[in-house]
Design a protein around this nucleic acid. Structure first.
Lengths: 126, 126
DNA sequence: TTGCTCCTCACGTCACGTGAGGTGGC
DNA sequence: TTGCTCCTCACGTCACGTGAGGTGGC
């Protein structure tokens, strides 16, 4: 498939796909005219790359993990890195939970404030 | 307190604090010599800013939310934005959970692979 | 032939990192 | 006076966005 097709099917931009190639994360074949050609597996790979970026990994970190992710080959050192990244993701989830509950409390405080304001400005609004 | 103190106590870089000021998120006073002076409340504010950045909000979005967060004042429109951001954070948490479980399954596959490799290369290792 | 997609530069953006070069308070 | 911290440019980085200008397949 072509780069536009992959972009549409994986939900990332064409520019992002070219960037992944530049970083060695996803290297497609080329048509005689020089156009990129991707296999079906690329869709899944792109989604994994996105997930890992979203989890805060750098392109360098993802590049190191890719061989393991693709064919299940890993050294003990790589496994340790994977475990470390997994722990970092768990930490990020906790952080987000905290940010979220903080936003929620801000919202309820603001809502209460808004209602009391209304009480003041419109004391007898039947 | 000075910028270095705030950096140490809030766990962000001095550069980040100056950047927040540039964006209007946290504007300190100035000493006669032109040095930044922060109040005690700044520690909490910085941590909130960090949480919101971590949750994927832009400095512009955070800037709009700050008055509400600081003194609890919000318009209905602002409350809607807060709710939208809260929903986005919830979505991000789900995404991270997915990425995490995917990493975990990659790890267990690799671990199994590693052990069977060991079986091959060292068949009778007592 | 007309579009639509593709290509490669290459500069812009966002949230900072990182010196460069200099001044001020304890 | 000696450090340590502070200051303001200003360029670098990472993961792309966004045209600029041109070529190729249906």
């Amino acid at each position: 498939m072509r780069v536009g097709d992959l972009a549409a099917r994986s939900g990332v931009s064409v520019r992002a796909l070219r960037y992944y190639e530049e970083k060695g994360l996803l290297v497609p074949g080329r048509s005689p005219a020089g156009h990129r050609r991707y296999s079906e597996d690329a869709v899944d790979q792109v989604q994994l790359i996105q997930q890992l970026y979203g989890a805060g990994l750098s392109s360098k970190a993802i590049l190191e993990l890719m061989p393991c992710v693709i064919d299940g080959k890993a050294t003990p050192a790589l496994l340790e890195r994977l475990a470390a990244e997994e722990a970092r993701i768990a930490q990020r989830i906790d952080d987000l939970d905290l940010a979220r509950s903080r936003l929620i409390s801000v919202m309820s405080a603001a809502r209460a404030n808004l209602e009391s304001d209304m009480d003041c400005r419109a004391p007898a609004q039947f």
